[in-house]
């Protein structure tokens, strides 16, 4: 079986969309990882976040569908009102179970699932937000060998989420927006 591509999962809530809009245009066609984006938003959001994000990058952006296979150079956006899980074979599962931290999709759910599927071939980045989602997930990512990074709360529109992660999880790097862009752009397979 072909092994999974190395994966970057980005989680964010209030104030994180602006960061993504700055980050995505910096990625080149040959960016070698697969990316999953989990953003909190209203359950019935009509506008597709994936459509909005795809205007900012040359990489392929799609709303994650169940059984999609993670491919390098592709960006998968967790759909509104579903949790997104990663199977051991690199396919995606949607899950309509209970909200976690009042959120579906929940960042913790995807971080933890990614950690179990990808182990040390995983980078997780937590952005601005006003919720404690993501902190527990980052700790498990760390325990299972993945790399953890958090937006510098000083640069975050809502600092609670990154602060919460820094105080409860083992965070490998705290990055301002410029550093974050460099970090993601330079990730290697």
């Amino acid at each position: 079986m072909k092994s999974l591509p190395t994966l970057l999962v980005i989680g964010g809530s209030a104030g994180s969309l602006e960061v993504l809009m700055q980050l995505l245009p910096e990625l080149k066609m040959d960016w070698p990882l697969a990316m999953i984006i989990v953003l909190h938003r209203k359950a019935d959001s009509e506008t597709l976040l994936s459509d909005l994000l795809s205007t900012k990058t040359c990489l392929c952006v799609k709303e994650a569908e169940e059984k999609d296979i993670l491919l390098a150079g592709c960006i998968y956006v967790a759909p509104a009102d579903y949790h997104l899980l990663i199977e051991p074979d690199g396919s995606l599962t949607l899950d309509a179970s209970e909200k976690v931290h009042y959120s579906r999709p929940s960042i913790d759910v995807t971080f933890i699932s990614a950690a179990e599927a990808c182990g040390d071939r995983l980078y997780c980045l937590l952005l601005s937000g006003a919720n404690m989602d993501g902190a527990e997930g980052l700790q498990i990512v760390h325990e299972l060998g993945g790399f953890t990074a958090v937006q510098d709360p000083e640069t975050a529109e809502a600092s609670f989420m990154p602060k919460c992660a820094i105080s409860t999880a083992k965070v490998d790097k705290v990055l301002n927006i410029r550093e974050m862009i460099d970090f993601v752009r330079d990730l290697k397979e």
Binding site: E87, P88, T93, D95, S97, I112, A117
Partner: peptide, 9 residues
């Protein structure tokens, strides 16, 4: 069943 989902439950 989806393994990731059952494992999580």
């Amino acid at each position: 069943y989806s393994f990731a989902s059952v494992k999580r439950r």
